[in-house]
Design a protein around this nucleic acid. Structure first.
Length: 129
DNA sequence: GGCTTGACTAATG
DNA sequence: TCATTAGCCAAGC
């Protein structure tokens, strides 16, 4: 059937926070400077495990802190993930555009131009610069 | 302790 | 470019 559940969270509200991992995610995301974006994998890597990219997105989904620039986190395809909530994607895109991020007609952005590359990440492409 | 869910990623057709 | 498949990990009940 469909692995992408549609009405799994019957509660309607995000799962409670207060866990270590989630807090770690927020700390990393808050380090993303304005005008830059990072992928879930990047944030996960900062946490020490690039495998937890899912948890990164999941943590942001349950985010309840306006001080966290969750909108600066997008997927590796340079696209915004909304998982059904267009409102969320719209708001995210608006915020990014306000910071200088440019989106393509397909709703994608050039990570190579605005991707956040902290000293922690093993940056590989620095051609052009 | 085990099962289910999930804002992901990479590879393939 | 989109859809499908497989993998990894954490949170919640």
């Amino acid at each position: 059937m469909n692995v992408s559940g549609t009405n799994r969270l019957k509660s309607g509200e995000p799962r409670a926070l207060g866990r270590g991992f989630n807090l770690r995610v927020y700390e990393v995301v808050r380090q993303i400077p304005s005008g830059n974006v990072a992928t879930y994998g990047d944030v996960a890597t900062m946490l020490g495990s690039p495998r937890v990219a899912r948890q990164v997105g999941y943590a942001l989904a349950a985010l309840a802190d306006p001080t966290v620039p969750w909108h600066r986190v997008i997927n590796a395809q340079g696209r915004i993930s909304h998982r059904g909530d267009l409102i969320r994607a719209e708001s995210q895109r608006r915020r990014l555009e306000a910071e200088g991020i440019v989106f393509d007609a397909l709703g994608r952005t050039e990570l190579s131009n605005s991707r956040w590359r902290p000293e922690g990440l093993p940056a590989g492409d620095v051609t052009g610069g």
